[in-house]
Write a protein that binds this DNA or RNA. Structure first.
Lengths: 210, 210
DNA sequence: GAGCAAACGGAACACCGTTCCGTTTGACGA
DNA sequence: TCGTCAAACGGAACGGTGTTCCGTTTGCTC
């Protein structure tokens, strides 16, 4: 949330606030490098919207009017590019957790709302949920980033709900997030499948039966 | 369930009972063709156990000591090979449905048990659940086969449970199966994730709150 | 303006599923 | 027994990935 408030292509953030944080090139000395970084983020965001996160790297390079070498220098792996594109929204999701907990009527309600936010984010990004799979080739970094950022938040919400006695405390946040993520796979591209509904059912199943 | 009761490699069925049913080559006039069909099924089953269903076709051809052309003549696509390898177990799962319903204490219990069977099957086959994804490239036939065979069974169980009033009847069998399948993705290869547990939660969430 | 590290572009590589086609082989009738 | 020929075979080749590599260009800095 620094600068670079470009209108940007289509739907999502895709801006590069270059606040570093994950160890990438960040701010370069050279103007063309900085410009290309931004261009790539915008191009990637646009391509992700139309072709999904699994879109060929060449498509993104072409959209950005840039060579393949350039894209790989800025983002050593596709996962790094995805992370950079969606960082803002993931950040917002993480920050919403404590806010919901403070504002919500009960911890379980806050948990449900937060998970709803998470699901909304996942299902609107074509193929993102599938890419989150820990073992999906080349996306380990994406998996790790989501966990690093969102797992503590989910743990807090889950802990609060368990402490209030609303919830069967036997499930850890990792499994819950993994399950929710899995349920979102393929939610786009299949009108017969409503991931939100199934996630609701899962969260409902979390309640203490007594 | 005809003949060819070979011991077969390692774990699962992998036998070719050549009862047709899906329109494949079935029984050839030539001995070598029949032998290769069986050899391929065994080799594929063995490779699937060690490398998962996404194993390269070349690996299977090598294991079988056969050319690439041969494998593609017997099984036009990788999905057809997977279907052939697991057909017996899918069949058994389908047949277990009505049996459980007849024997079980309540329809909801039968549904739970049947889904347990389904989950056990999925999580023991590396990557099968992920391949079931409708849009996973090249596996549409696999998706369709599972649906054709198991959806009616699930519909029956779900309908019975809804009729008995144990269950919120708002969810159709397709969504339930899709959700369960999704929850099983990556269940192997991640000891921190217990798909069975989450599926139980999902099924529990299905119960009427009142 | 000269020099040089940094950034660039895209050919090349390794791997994938799949197709294609020249070669081999097994069944069957003479 | 042997000739015939459709059927089956093997694997090179194709189109498509992600990623690496390196010769060339470019923007800073002095």
């Amino acid at each position: 949330m620094f600068r670079f408030g470009k209108p940007d292509s289509g739907e999502c953030g895709a801006v590069n606030d270059s606040d570093e944080g994950a160890g990438r090139a960040g701010q370069s000395k050279r103007k063309d490098a900085r410009r290309n970084n931004e261009t790539l983020l915008d191009a990637a965001a646009a391509v992700f919207v139309t072709s999904g996160v699994e879109a060929p790297v060449r498509d993104i390079a072409a959209k950005a009017g840039v060579g393949l070498g350039t894209i790989y220098r800025h983002f050593p792996t596709r996962a790094d590019l995805v992370i950079a594109v969606y960082r803002h929204q993931i950040e917002a999701c993480a920050e919403a957790g404590p806010a919901l907990l403070a504002a919500g009527p009960t911890p379980h309600a806050a948990l449900g709302q937060w998970i709803g936010l998470f699901v909304d984010f996942l299902v609107t990004k074509h193929g993102l949920a599938a890419a989150l799979q820990a073992d999906s080739a080349g996306f380990e970094a994406l998996h790790a980033y989501f966990l690093d950022r969102l797992l503590p938040v989910c743990t807090e919400l889950l802990g609060a709900a368990a402490a209030s006695g609303e919830i069967d405390s036997g499930l850890d946040a990792y499994q819950l997030m993994r399950g929710v993520g899995n349920l979102c796979i393929g939610a786009d591209a299949d009108p017969r499948y409503d991931a939100r509904r199934l996630v609701e059912l899962l969260v409902a199943g979390l309640r203490q039966p007594r």
